[in-house]
């Protein structure tokens, strides 16, 4: 119950942060990526603000024996640079540049009623399903 409430609040605050910062406006995201055109650097400050806060607090929190509501931390343990990491990030970057949406802002934008965000999220979930189907092949040929 507490877990669910925390996750709900985190999602809520996260979405407000995305909206306040401008990440939910694809034109701003594309403006940020338009380095060789009409570059709008504003969104760099989103990363600076988020990383600035979290990189400091992260260090205090991980000094704890465990998180508050569960027994242990569940942090990623992989450390090697794999082909799948690079290819996946590249495909994501291409999609991000085309649409101006990344996953969080797209889901946050669903209540806007804009058809674009609904189509994007639908296609995104389809892309995840496609990955699921291709996973055996990808595990073999793209480690």
């Amino acid at each position: 119950m507490k877990h669910s409430l925390v996750a709900l609040i985190v999602g809520f605050l996260f979405a407000l942060g995305l909206g306040i910062s401008g990440m939910t406006q694809p034109q701003k995201v594309i403006g940020f990526l338009d380095l060789f055109g009409d570059w709008n650097p504003a969104l760099a400050f989103v990363m600076i603000g988020a990383i600035g806060v979290h990189s400091v607090l992260f260090r205090f929190i991980t000094k704890r024996e465990s998180p508050v509501l569960v027994d242990q931390f569940h942090l990623p343990t992989k450390s090697d640079l794999t082909p799948s990491l690079l290819v996946g990030a590249a495909l994501f970057g291409i999609g991000w540049g085309i649409g101006g949406f990344c996953p969080g802002p797209a889901i946050t934008s669903l209540p806007s009623g804009n058809l674009e965000s609904a189509v994007f999220v639908g296609a995104m979930m389809l892309g995840k399903g496609l990955f699921r189907i291709c996973k055996p092949l990808l595990d073999k040929y793209l480690p």
Binding site: S84, G95, F101, F120, G127
Partner: peptide, 12 residues
């Protein structure tokens, strides 16, 4: 764009 983002983020 959505397909690429969905597939790419899970792969990466």
């Amino acid at each position: 764009a959505g397909l690429l983002v969905g597939f790419g983020t899970v792969l990466g």
